[in-house]
Design a protein around this nucleic acid. Structure first.
Length: 905
RNA sequence: GCGGACGUGGUGGAACCGGUAGACACACAGGACUUAAAAUCCUGAGACGGUAACGUCGUGUGGGUUCGACUCCCACCGUCCGCACCA
């Protein structure tokens, strides 16, 4: 695929097609214009050519340098939306650019195909979820193909296919063997609308992320993945992800939530403790504040609370009330710190004669730490609020820097920062940190019931990942429950466990559970009657390893280790910020778990699946509302006027419609523009170009008709430029001339400068900057073309080729068409990125600014190699400088070569 | 409450490591071509004053460092995002 190599198939097909389809729009559009470029028509043609030549298939030659470019695969919801267009346009520019730079590029596409919407569709429209899903995939595949993406479609996967999920079941069984998958009974988030359990990550403000229903707490036996085993590594390895957005790393770090503290066992007073309880273990990050303690508190679900409540109806009622307390933002903010004295007394670990009350409190979480704390009101605002309400002692133990011990007073505001210890006996005078260590050391050596009283402990906020879903349209969990043998993994030769086709969706609940036969099986171990697990896996499991499967989608095992070793990690991953925690954290966990179960190996010792991540902004659009209060599609309104007098008119009724704020495109607000309409009307290149222009890719882009029309105009302009080149210089001179006139040279410089800038911009995913540079160059080309001088014929053809190469990754169809028009017999998509001639990047003459006292007064054109003294002398002679100095003598002159002169006077 | 990001013309945005702020584009205005419109081409434009040359001001606000600050430091204001009783 080297430059200049003729591609016979392409050439002959091209000529045949070209001859037969001489543009169908023959109208002359003005004196300068010839035929307009018919994008939709030509795009179909080039897509056909690329497809026929299979040029985007990744090479299996593992000796070449590789580049794995991946965009987050879509959920097949029905049709692609503008968010997809933006995401895939960006990924495609990068993939095509890397191909041109000589990499063996893997750029695959697939479908995140399991999930609730398919079941909802089944319920509403009485179609099987599979039928619905595959129909959507067909539609969306067609739409993606119409975008002209450089995808290797031979690797397409759908997670709902048994060919995919059979391997996922194998992975599950191996995780089970390794203890990384386990079952436990626990309180779970139950979505009463979707009738399913949700992961903590899927509960937002106390509501289900999909249904929006208030989540309830239920005690159920569920499957979990032991992501907490990797908490430390998942946190510390974030530091290696230097090509991830800082924001995402921070969000993950906060989510994992590491804290260093200690577990402390408090002895309970025998007379007051419930039967069977002699001690209470608490978790704290502040053992240094032990002498400021004034109470202990446990969660309502804590075993000791339950035990104490048995003989105390009032306490039992209080605990019930705590459990009912919601977790939504408003409820937490409104909730006061409340507690109930259990009557139990605990012995202070550093003073046996000191007893503290044990409360049940509504602000203690059972599933963090040990579900029990000691309260130090002076050092924690919650404890302070609690102490004031129940009139417990408030003893300041930390003196803030700069405060005086004798005058320092603490009112109702706790001080939780560092300082010097006070009122803390043998810790007095120490710094917070030293006091922490001293208290911790003592407690670790001190014994309570023959065991150390305290132990340093790192605690994480991260919980294990609950993956059980009581749904049909997901990957079946491959286990069998036998009364005699317990939980038995499905033998490998019986995989895949497939979903029954004849499930019913007419009522809520799990169709697998109520299926008459599916779950009744024989136990693989003892042969007795047993039942299948009817839960399916969270769909986030499917997307946690699909990028691995792409490296060898036909492999008989889940992973072809050689292929994975070659291709992974993904070199550039692109997707929405909404996956900052869920998908990206799960995938990082999976990569490690797959390594530890022997499925995967990485070339590096860092087990990160995505070495660079880019999170693109959303596509937004104005909203419109009719006078009846209904949202209107952009297609349903006509816009008139501009500025303050701009107004929208509802086409159907002719009535005025309200123009609302610019928001993310969504079905609910109806501010949608269908990519199909745009592609059919303007072409895919236009949609792509618009998406890449102007807005920096990480920020939101506002979709406007005017912007699209502008992009379309640029396409026609490039097309005319090719006409102009060919018209002015029908033949590209074979030999490069020895000399170039000033304009020809200027054109060459502009071309190579642009080439350099555009390459760097694409590499850094700064597509808007690349677009600006291309505009700038095309402006130069257009001006210079009207001149006539030595070397211009050659330079013009070079410029044409450069321009076309530069737009190639962004508008591949137009570029391919122009490439052919310029007379090349090859596919541009197979051409290498042109080499920059470094000599052309430097100018002999440079323009430097001249400042007087930091204020720009003039500019000076000097030789690039001019000496500072010469520049200084020239600057001082300038009229403007003399005037600005107003007779004063310059005190100092600063000359920054090739940049600026500043005269201080 | 905690954490983070951002703030530049009418608009989207650009500006390398502290060195000519506003590249490029959209919208706008004027002109050319046209019977006309569309399309295309040319020209103009940060604000204020001035016919102009030119001057003053100008990157959210106030200070600081520097010969020089959109860029670095401090304080504040505003907008957006994430987390949230995590001991």
């Amino acid at each position: 695929m080297s430059a200049g190599e003729a591609d016979d198939l392409t050439l002959s097909t091209f000529r045949a097609f070209y001859g037969a389809n001489q543009f169908k729009i023959p109208e002359r559009m003005g004196p300068m214009a010839t035929e307009r470029y018919n994008a939709p028509d030509r795009e179909r043609y080039w897509q056909h050519i690329w497809d026929k030549n299979q040029i985007f298939r990744a090479s299996e030659d593992h000796k070449q340098p590789k580049c794995y470019v991946l965009e987050m695969f879509p959920y097949p919801s029905g049709r692609i939306h503008m968010g997809h267009v933006r995401n895939y346009a960006m990924g495609d520019v990068f993939a095509r650019f890397k191909r041109a730079k000589g990499f063996n590029v893997l750029h695959p596409m697939g479908w995140d195909a399991f999930g609730m919407p398919a079941e909802n569709a089944a319920m509403e429209r009485k179609v099987h979820p599979g039928t619905w899903t595959y129909a959507n995939i067909d539609t969306m595949r067609g739409q993606l193909k119409s975008m002209g993406l450089s995808l290797d479609w031979s690797r397409e996967i759908a997670t709902c296919s048994p060919n995919y999920y059979r391997h996922q079941q194998k992975l599950f069984l191996d995780l089970l063997k390794k203890g990384l998958a386990y079952r436990k009974s626990s309180k779970v988030n139950w979505d009463p609308v979707d009738h399913t359990v949700l992961a903590n990550e899927q509960v937002i403000d106390g509501r289900g992320w999909r249904s929006g229903a208030l989540v309830e707490q239920r005690e159920l036996t569920q499957w979990f993945f032991k992501i907490t085993d990797y908490a430390e590594e998942l946190l510390s390895d974030l530091d290696t992800l230097t090509n991830w957005p800082e924001k995402v790393r921070l969000m993950q770090a906060n989510w994992i939530g590491r804290s260093e503290g200690m577990l402390i066992r408090w002895a309970l007073d025998k007379d007051t403790a419930p039967k069977g309880f002699s001690e209470l273990e608490v978790y704290t990050t502040r053992p240094d504040t032990l002498f400021g303690a004034s109470f202990l508190a446990v969660a309502a679900d804590h075993p000791i609370a339950r035990a104490a409540a048995e003989n105390n109806p009032d306490l039992a009622a209080f605990c019930d009330e705590c459990r009912r307390l919601g977790t939504s933002v408003a409820e937490i903010e409104a909730a006061e710190k409340r507690g109930f004295d259990t009557g139990i007394r605990a012995v202070h670990p550093l003073d046996k004669s000191w007893q503290l009350p044990v409360y049940v409190a509504n602000f203690i979480l059972m599933d963090y730490g040990t579900g029990a704390i000691f309260g130090c009101p002076s050092g924690d605002q919650r404890d302070m609020d609690f102490a004031r309400r129940y009139e417990l002692p408030v003893v300041p133990v930390i003196l803030p820097p700069g405060e005086n011990k004798d005058t320092f007073e603490i009112k109702n505001k706790a001080y939780s920062e560092d300082g010097t210890m006070i009122n803390s006996r043998f810790l007095d005078g120490l710094t917070t940190k030293a006091a922490f260590d001293k208290a911790a050391d003592i407690l670790e050596q001190q014994k309570l019931a023959n065991r150390p009283q305290g132990a340093r402990k790192v605690n994480f906020r991260l919980r294990d990942w609950g993956i059980s879903r009581q749904r049909y349209w997901g990957c079946p969990i491959p286990v069998i429950h036998c009364e005699k043998c317990g939980v038995v993994g499905v033998p490998e030769q019986d995989l895949p466990v497939t979903l029954p086709e004849d499930a019913t969706f007419d009522k809520p609940g799990n169709p697998l559970e109520r299926h008459p036969t599916w779950k009744h099986v024989k136990c693989p171990t003892c042969g007795g009657d047993a039942t299948r697990e009817t839960d399916t896996m969270d769909t986030f499991v499917d997307s946690s390893w699909y990028f691995v499967r792409f490296t060898a989608p036909e492999a008989k095992t889940p992973v072809d280790k050689d292929a994975a070793h070659y291709w992974l990690p993904v070199d550039q991953y692109i997707g929405g910020i909404e996956h900052a925690i869920l998908h990206l954290l799960y995938s990082r966990f999976f990569a490690r778990a797959m390594c530890d179960t022997g499925h995967l190996k990485f070339a590096s010792n860092v087990r990160e699946p995505f070495s660079a991540l880019f999170t693109q902004g959303m596509v937004t659009h104005e909203t419109y509302k009719s006078q009846d209060g209904f949202w209107l599609l952009p297609n349903d309104v006509r816009l008139e006027g501009e500025g303050a007098s701009r107004q929208a008119i509802e086409i159907a009724t002719g009535r005025l419609a309200a123009i609302g704020p610019i928001e993310k495109m969504s079905k609910s607000k109806k501010n949608l523009v269908d990519p199909d309409d745009i592609i059919a009307h303007y072409g895919a290149d236009c949609a792509r170009w618009f998406m890449l222009s102007d807005s920096p890719p990480e920020r939101d882009v506002i979709w406007t008709e005017a912007g699209v029309a502008g992009a379309s105009r640029f396409i026609q302009r490039v097309w005319r430029l090719m006409d102009d080149i060919i018209e002015a210089y029908p033949q590209k001179p074979d030999k490069r001339p020895d000399t170039f006139g000033p304009d020809a040279l200027e054109l060459r410089k502009a071309g190579h400068r642009a080439l350099d800038n555009v390459g760097k911009a694409i590499e850094a995913l700064r597509f808007n900057v690349a677009v600006a540079n291309i505009h700038e160059f095309s402006n130069v080309l257009q001006t210079v073309l009207t001149k006539s001088e030595p070397g211009l014929a050659w330079a013009a053809h070079e410029a044409g080729a450069l321009l076309v190469s530069m737009i190639g990754p962004m508008m591949p169809h137009l570029a391919e068409e122009c490439w052919a028009r310029l007379g090349y017999n090859t596919l541009l998509a197979n051409q290498p990125w042109p080499a920059v001639e470094p000599d052309l990047l430097v100018d002999d003459q440079v323009t430097i600014a001249v400042q007087v006292n930091g204020k720009r007064r003039d500019e000076l054109v000097v030789s690039r190699t001019a000496k500072s003294e010469e520049v200084e002398a020239a600057a001082l002679k300038l009229d403007s400088v003399v005037r600005a100095l107003d007779g004063r003598a310059p005190k100092k002159v600063i000359v920054v070569p090739q940049r600026i002169v500043n005269v201080v006077g």
